[in-house]
C-alpha cells in the first residue's frame, strides 16, 4: 500500500541507485574474473538479467515521468484558469454587492413614496369640495368687499368677530370667545365701552381692522407703520371700519 503511494521521483531515484549498484557489481565481477581468470557465469548472468530488468523498469518510469510532466503543465494551466475564474467571481460579487446597495436604497425610497401616496389617498379631498369651499369663502365676502358695498351694508368683507375668535389665530392669542358677545375692541370702542385711555391710540376709523386681526398685546407702532402711511389702506380701513361699526350697531 505504501509502495503504491510512493512518488515517481522516489521510485526513479531508487531504481537509479539499484542500476548504479548492479552495474558496478557487474563491472567489478567481470574485472575480477578477467584478472583471476576465473569465470562465474551464473552470477554474472544473474546480475546482468537484474540490470536489464531494472533498466527496463527505469525506462518505463521515465516514460511515466515525462507523461506526468505533461499532466503537470496541464495542471498549471488549470490552476491559472481557476485563479482567473476566482478573480472574475470576486469582481462580479463586488459589482453585485454595489448593485444590491443601490437597489436597496431605491426600494427604500420607493417604499417611502408609496407610504406618502397611501397617506395622501386616505386623507384625500375631492376637488369638488375644494371648489365648493372656495365658493363659500368668496360668497361670504371674506376676502373682499362686495362691489356694491356701502356703509351700513350688513355684508362684510372679512371674517366676522366670532369666526376670528374661533379660528387658529384667536386660539393662539387666547382671545375670549365670550363675554364681549363676539365683539372686538374696535366695536366696543365704537360703542363707547372701552376705557378712554385707549381711545386716542386706537381710533376705530383707522385701526379697527388691525385690532381685529392681531392679538391685543401687539405694539401700536407696527400698526401705524403698516397701515398709517398708505393712503389706500387708510381708505380701506375707513370703509371697513365703517362696516364694523355697522356690525357693532347690528349686534347691539
Amino acid at each position: 500500500m505504501a509502495a503504491t503511494e510512493k512518488s515517481t521521483k522516489e521510485k526513479l531515484l531508487c531504481v537509479l541507485d539499484d542500476l548504479e549498484v548492479l552495474s558496478r557489481e557487474l563491472i567489478e565481477l567481470l574485472a575480477l574474473s578477467r584478472s583471476q581468470k576465473v569465470s562465474q557465469p551464473g552470477e554474472e548472468n544473474q546480475i546482468l538479467e537484474l540490470l536489464i530488468q531494472k533498466d527496463g523498469e527505469f525506462q518505463e518510469l521515465m516514460k511515466v515521468a515525462f507523461s506526468q510532466g505533461k499532466v503537470h503543465q496541464e495542471m498549471q494551466l488549470l490552476e491559472k484558469e481557476v485563479e482567473k475564474r476566482d478573480s472574475d467571481i470576486q469582481q462580479l460579487q463586488k459589482q453585485l454587492k454595489e448593485a444590491e446597495h443601490i437597489l436597496a436604497t431605491a426600494v427604500y425610497q420607493a417604499k417611502e413614496k408609496l407610504k406618502s401616496i397611501d397617506k395622501a389617498r386616505k386623507g384625500s379631498i375631492s376637488s369638488e369640495e375644494l371648489i365648493k369651499y372656495a365658493h363659500r369663502i368668496s360668497a361670504s365676502n371674506a376676502v373682499c368687499a362686495p362691489l356694491t358695498w356701502v356703509p351700513g351694508d350688513p355684508r362684510r368683507p372679512y371674517p366676522t368677530d366670532l369666526e376670528m375668535r374661533s379660528g387658529l389665530l384667536g386660539q393662539m392669542s387666547n382671545l375670549p370667545t365670550n363675554g364681549v358677545n363676539g365683539h372686538l375692541p374696535g366695536d366696543a370702542l365704537a360703542a363707547g365701552r372701552l376705557p378712554d385711555v385707549l381711545a386716542p391710540q386706537y381710533p376705530w376709523q383707522s385701526n379697527d381692522i388691525s385690532m381685529n386681526m392681531l392679538p391685543p398685546n401687539h405694539s401700536n407702532d407696527f400698526l401705524m407703520e403698516s397701515l398709517g402711511p398708505n393712503k389706500e389702506n387708510e381708505d380701506d380701513v375707513e370703509v371697513m371700519s365703517t362696516d364694523s361699526s355697522s356690525s357693532s350697531s347690528d349686534s347691539d
Binding site: 510512493k6 512518488s7 526513479l12 510532466g69 503543465q73 481557476v82
Partner: peptide, 24 residues
C-alpha cells in the same frame, strides 16, 4: 530527475489532483 516537474506525486494522486482541478 531532481529537476523534473510534476513527479512529486504518484500518477494516481496526480490524476486525482487533475480531476479536482477540472471540477473546480
Amino acid at each position: 530527475i531532481n529537476n523534473m516537474a510534476g513527479i512529486e506525486l504518484s500518477p494516481e494522486q496526480q490524476q486525482q489532483h487533475l480531476q479536482s482541478l477540472r471540477v473546480q
